[in-house]
Amino acid sequence: MDYKYIEQLLERYWECKTTPEEEKLLQDFYLQPHVPNNLEKYRCLFDYEREEKDICLDSDFDERILHEVGETIVEAKHNNLFFRLYPIYRAVAIVAIVFTLGMAAQHSFSTEKDSSETTINYASYKDTYTDPQVAYEQVASALKEVSEGLRDAGLQTEDTINIKK
């Protein structure tokens, strides 16, 4: 038998010029149990290629490698609408708080107080007198003074203090 074609294929194989079909031919040739002695020395190469081709990664390969490295496997979660809008809620909350602080600061530092919304704090008052009679005399005297003052200001008995002025 003439193995010249096989030898030619081998020459092309060493020069990396063989096509996949030609390599298949060489593989099939070396599947035979008996080959010429001058070609027997190349059997181990083609047997190695055939055996290594069957080896592939296990299904748990990723897990084992990550375990060795120390990383945990993260699985993607499907977020509902609330979690997707969470950054917007956070931004709105911050804006609301800053706005409230700004309004409160503006109100506190404003010199133009609106007296219609304030009440007088009587808790800090300490009565000067303990005797109601003495207090009455002071009240009567003060009321008379204010009455004279209002009359001096031109207020007549029939007039009102014109509260809506």
């Binding site: 409160a104 506190s108 107080k113 304030t118 009440t119 800090s124």
Partner: peptide, 26 residues
């Protein structure tokens, strides 16, 4: 971030008692 928001919220609340403070007479 939660702590910052909480501190801001507390600051906002602490202003309101000041706003509600009553006045003095003349």
């Amino acid at each position: 971030m939660a702590r910052v928001l909480f501190c801001l919220f507390l600051s906002a609340i602490s202003v309101f008692p000041c706003m509600a403070e009553t006045d003095e007479d003349f």
